[in-house]
Nucleic acid binder design. Structure first.
Lengths: 235, 235
DNA sequence: TTTTGTGTGAACGGATAGTTAATATTCTTT
DNA sequence: AAAGAATATTAACTATCCGTTCACACAAAA
C-alpha cells in the first residue's frame, strides 16, 4: 500500500466558510490544500502550483467556474470535480461536457467529497502510471530509476538501491550542494534517524564505481558542507 | 462529439423498465448495451463480453451490486458507475471505496447519465489509447494471452494462468521494475490483500520454465525493490 | 599544532530474497 | 454433488545482500 499522498488539491469556492471546512477535512486525509476564492486567482494559482486535482465551484466573482474549467482544460488534463449548489441536469451536463470529471451538488458531507476525490485519483493514477522515464544522463553516465539501472559507458553496473537513489538525487540537481542531513531527508526519508556518516560510505562506493569514467562530471565534496554532483554540461 | 466506436455498456438493474428506457437513450448515443437483471448473470456476462463500462444498480436479486463490483474489480479496471435509489452518503462512500468510479442517485435524467459516461470514458480513453497487445515476443519467447499459451523456442509449455499473467505483465513493460505490491495490484487486482511472498514463488516457477532459454532477456530481481523483465532487445 | 571534518576498510546484523513443502483454494471430472 | 487434480497461497527455513556503524587514517582549516 504505497499511498503516501501529499497530493495538492486546488479548492476554488467563494464561500470561505465552506473552504475552511473542506480544507480541514482534506488535510486530515493527507492532502495539501490550496485555496482560491475567485476565478482569476484560481487560474493563476493553477498555472503556478500545478495541483493534482481541482475542486471547482461554479458561482464565483469575476470569471465563473465554467470559464475556469475551460481555461484549465486548454492546458491540462488534471482531474476536475465541480461542486455547486445548482443541481439542475443541464448544469451537470454542461460541466461534464466542458471537461469536468464529476459534478457534486451542495450540500454534501465531507466524506462523500473525499471518497470521490480518492476514486478519481485512483482512476487517474492508473492512467498516468508511466509519464516520463525517470532518468538522468551525463557524459557516459545513465541513471535510470524505472529499471533501477546504472550504466557507465554503455555498460550496466550492478548497484544497490540506496546508492543508486543517492546518485540519482544528486545528479538530478547538478552543481547543487546538499548537506548530509538534507540527503538523509530526501533520499532516505523524512522520518529517518541515523548517523549521517552513512552518506560518506555510499559516496565512497559510488566513487569507486564511477572512477575515471569522465572528466565532465564528478561527485565532489564541499568541505564542511556536504556533497554535490558537479558538471559543466548543459545536459 | 459522438464517438462512433460502438462501445459496449453493461447495464445491470433489476428494474426492467428503467433498463429499457436507459438502453434506448444509450443506443441513441451510439453505445451498444448489454442488459442484465441480476448479479450472477452480470458477472458472467461481464467476463464473457468484456464491456467498456458498467452501469451497476445496488439492489439486485441474488448477489447485490456491492458484490458484483467486488467481483469485477478482482479482475478488471473497467469504469464502473453505480446507480441507486439509495442516496445516503455512507452508500456512496462504500461504493466508491469498493472501486466504483462514480455514484449516481435515482431518479436521474438520461442526459445526465450519458454525460457522466462520456466524461468517464473520456478520462479512461487516454489510458486505453494503446490497443492492448495480447501477445509479447522476445527471442525464443512468445506469451499469448488469447490462447493463454507460453511458447519457448517453438515449444508450448504448460503454464498456470497466474504465472502466465505475471510474466505477460512484466514482459509487456520490459526493463521496468515493479514492486511486489504493484504486481499484486496490477496482476492480481487492486483489492487483493495477500502475502507479497506469493510473487516470489511464481517468479521462481517461471524461472524454472525459462531457465537457459535465451541470454537476451531474463527475469531479474532488483534487490530491495522488486522484479523486472530485463532485455536489450528492441522487441 | 589543534581541531574539525572526511576517506576508507572491515565487520556486524537486520532486512530481503530464494527455496521447499504444506495447506488452501479453485477447477474438472465423474 | 463429491472426489480428485491442478493451481494458488501461505508458512517456515535458509541463504544472502547491503545498509549501517565503528575505528582509524588522513586532510583541511584556524
Amino acid at each position: 500500500m504505497a499511498n503516501e499522498k501529499s497530493l495538492k488539491v486546488l479548492l476554488v469556492d467563494d464561500d470561505k466558510q465552506i473552504c475552511d471546512w473542506l480544507k480541514m477535512y482534506l488535510e486530515n486525509e493527507g492532502y495539501s490544500v490550496i485555496l482560491s476564492h475567485d476565478g482569476e486567482e484560481a487560474v493563476v494559482k493553477f498555472n503556478a502550483l500545478k495541483p493534482d486535482l481541482v475542486l471547482l465551484d461554479i458561482m464565483l466573482p469575476g470569471i465563473d467556474g465554467w470559464q475556469v474549467c475551460r481555461e484549465i482544460r486548454k492546458k491540462s488534463k488534471v482531474p476536475i470535480i465541480m461542486i455547486s449548489a445548482k443541481g439542475e441536469t443541464i448544469d451537470k451536463v454542461i460541466g461534464l461536457e466542458l471537461g469536468a470529471d464529476n459534478y457534486l451538488v451542495k450540500p454534501f458531507e465531507a466524506k462523500e467529497v473525499i471518497a470521490h476525490i480518492n476514486a478519481l485519483l485512483r482512476r487517474v493514477g492508473t492512467a498516468n502510471a508511466e509519464p516520463e522515464a525517470k532518468e538522468v544522463r551525463f557524459d557516459k553516465l545513465v541513471v535510470n530509476m524505472d529499471s533501477y539501472e546504472l550504466r557507465v559507458a554503455g555498460k550496466t553496473i550492478d548497484t544497490p538501491p540506496k546508492e543508486l537513489e543517492l546518485l540519482f538525487y544528486l545528479a538530478s540537481n547538478p552543481n547543487r550542494v546538499y548537506t548530509r542531513d538534507q540527503l538523509l531527508d530526501e533520499v532516505w526519508g523524512f522520518e529517518y534517524y541515523g548517523d549521517s556518516r552513512t552518506i560518506d560510505v555510499h559516496i565512497k562506493r559510488l566513487r569507486e564505481k564511477l572512477e575515471g569514467v569522465s572528466d565532465k562530471w564528478a561527485l565532489k565534496t564541499v568541505w564542511g558542507v556536504g556533497y554535490k554532483f558537479e558538471t559543466e554540461e548543459e545536459e
